[in-house]
């Protein structure tokens, strides 16, 4: 999995590319842990080809951390395969999900 980052309106836009499963989730966690807790995030999922519950767990963990650090974490551009996992687990109730990265960073 590749991770790239840019900034829009004080939001760190973290774009993920590839597979987010048990073997790549620690990489994402470490990456986010390297940021200050109060840094607000938009995670761009457009190029995530595959996500399983370990990947979902990592995202949920980040969301919890951001919530306690009173920062905001949003998800953007979720594709159908990723959406399916959020739908079954009802994890969509924990996130603000946008279909556009800049809209997520503006709101």
């Amino acid at each position: 999995m590749n991770i790239s980052e840019k900034t829009i309106n004080n939001y760190a836009i973290v774009s993920l590319q590839g597979i987010l499963n048990a073997s790549s989730a620690p990489k994402l966690k470490t990456y986010i842990a390297g940021m200050p807790d109060e840094q607000s995030l938009v995670i761009d999922l457009e190029n995530v080809e595959f996500l399983d519950s370990s990947g979902l767990g990592a995202l949920v963990g980040i969301a919890r951390k951001k919530k306690t650090g009173s920062a905001v974490m949003k998800l953007a551009r979720m594709n159908e395969r990723v959406k399916k996992v959020f739908e079954i687990t009802q994890a969509y109730t924990l996130f603000d999900i946008y279909d556009d990265v800049s809209a997520a960073a503006e709101a």
Binding site: S53, G57, A58, V60, G61, R64, V85, I88, T89, Q90
Partner: peptide
Amino acid sequence: QAPDISSYPEGGYGLFLIHRL
């Protein structure tokens, strides 16, 4: 069983997902 999503669990989704799929 489905994990209680409102408590932000990081795991425990696996078998539940399998059963649903």
